[in-house]
Amino acid sequence: MRASPLVVVAALASSSAAEPGLDLPEPSAPAPRVIVEDSPGPVYYRLPRDTRALSRSGLGVELRSSRAGFALDLLGGASIQLARGGRSALWIEGGYAYAGFGDHLLALGAGPAIELGPAILDEAHAVRLALVPHALIGRCDGELGYGLRTSAIASFLWYGIEVAHQYLVVGERTRHEVHVMITFPMTIGGGS
């Protein structure tokens, strides 16, 4: 005997409905209280936090007179917002800078930074511009050198571009150099 599809469906439904459950005594609980804010909630701590760690690893070139040399930077630091949720920040970073002319320098810098839209990106990946003067000290061509690197930095997502003027004093000589770097990855900590 063949059962019609409707009978099969009805039989399945009734077997499912007949499946026994556990008939346990329900716990008694007081009606839940509704806690409401005493006034419209302030917004301060919920704004993105004001300090974010950053790291920049860059490869590029250093231009000295008519010569060009390979350059490598390994830098880390922090971006400190001037106010929670604000777009202006203090950019602090330090680390190691190498140039193919035989320069091994310690760099330490701080400067203003500003974050630009668009709102579709979170704070960690927004367009960010910074102007960061760095103090430099280390060995240049086997001699002690020191100086100043003034960097204009633009970052977006995980990429950054840095164009800098570098003034170095090595022994009794002075040098003016141009430092151009592509930074990847560029990481800036999120808001949590």
Partner: peptide, 15 residues
């Protein structure tokens, strides 16, 4: 947990 107020479309990690 509480959501951050970021003014952005991408949700931030909640507190």
């Amino acid at each position: 947990s509480a959501q951050r107020v970021t003014g952005r479309y991408t949700p931030a990690e909640p507190c």
